[in-house]
Write a protein that binds this DNA or RNA. Structure first.
Length: 268
DNA sequence: CGTGGCTCCTGGCGGC
DNA sequence: TGCCGCCAGGAGCCAC
């Protein structure tokens, strides 16, 4: 699940559950999720401290660690293709695929759940420094139209591959790239260079609408509007506008769903 | 710089 | 039922 809207929802969830609670225990259940940090170091960075606030950049979730901060006062989480965070009280509620368990003094726990183990947990100096080191582009939710249009301008690849390139723009993955291009009326294989400025601006505004809507849908534990491509994004799915059968094509090794009637190359 | 292939993992599904 | 290959909301690495 974890593209920008999902991670933003997890961030809000952490704010509502795991802040300002002293950490007592840290248990790494799947060492391979640790990125450039040992269990020992993670434990010493967290034990006796508490999370003070959260932040997000693209698909990365950050939690600030309070106390006399050492050099790496931020916990970093990335979920890969599967995952979430879960706050719970009884050990019996420990979710499946719990790869990192943080126990608080109040008896509650926070689990980093990551079925496929493609996720990572790390420590960082700051979200900004981390994003810079990873070469991440600006966050898709806060990038302005000017910058968005300018960043696309330097590119040669397809619209979908470019939207999913975290170095161009951080936060968009396979599902939301499809949704954004559907709503913007752009065929996923359209070379970015073939998009005129109006169309790029349209993609930018649609992107903002889609991301905000997706976050709201998650907070309400609701479903996407039927006018969205997402509910129809499956084998045999049809365009919500007029029932045209959706088609698929591989881009960057991922399957792109699109409507052959409403998504075109060039102008829309 | 771009794309496609392969890889890391786990699990669900369809086909035989 | 059992086994097998394929696919899944990510991304790094490599060859071309």
């Amino acid at each position: 699940m974890p593209e920008l809207p999902d991670v933003e929802y997890y961030r809000i969830y952490l704010n509502a559950t795991a802040l300002h609670k002293t950490i007592e225990r840290v248990e790494v259940r799947a060492p391979r999720i640790l990125e450039e940090v040992t269990e020992r170091r993670l434990r010493s960075a967290l034990a006796g401290r508490a999370f003070a606030s959260t932040s997000r950049h693209g698909k990365y979730l950050f939690a600030a660690i309070d106390g006399d901060a050492d050099e790496s006062p931020w916990l970093v989480m990335h979920f890969g293709m599967t995952g979430r965070v879960k706050y719970f009280e009884d050990a019996g509620q420990d979710p499946e695929h719990d790869r990192l368990l943080i126990g608080f003094e109040n008896g509650y726990f926070l689990a980093f759940v990551n079925q496929r183990k493609f996720g990572h947990v790390a420590l960082a100096t700051s979200p900004e420094a981390f994003a810079k080191e990873k070469g991440l582009g600006p966050d898709a939710l806060s990038v302005g139209r000017e910058e968005f249009v300018a960043r696309l301008g330097e590119r040669r690849g397809s619209a979908k591959a470019t939207l999913m390139n975290q170095k161009v723009l951080a936060g968009i993955g396979n599902i939301y790239a499809d949704e954004i291009l559907f709503q913007a009326g752009v065929h996923p294989k359209t070379p970015v260079r073939a998009l005129d400025e109006d169309t790029r601006g349209k993609v930018h505004s649609v992107m903002g609408d889609v991301l905000h809507t997706a976050i709201a849908v998650m907070r309400r534990h609701d479903d996407f509007p039927d006018s969205y491509l997402i509910p129809h994004r499956h084998e045999g799915g049809v365009c919500p506008l007029d029932g045209t059968p959706l088609e698929t094509v591989k881009i960057s090794g991922r399957r792109a769903y699109f409507c052959p009637e409403h998504q075109s190359y060039g102008r829309t």
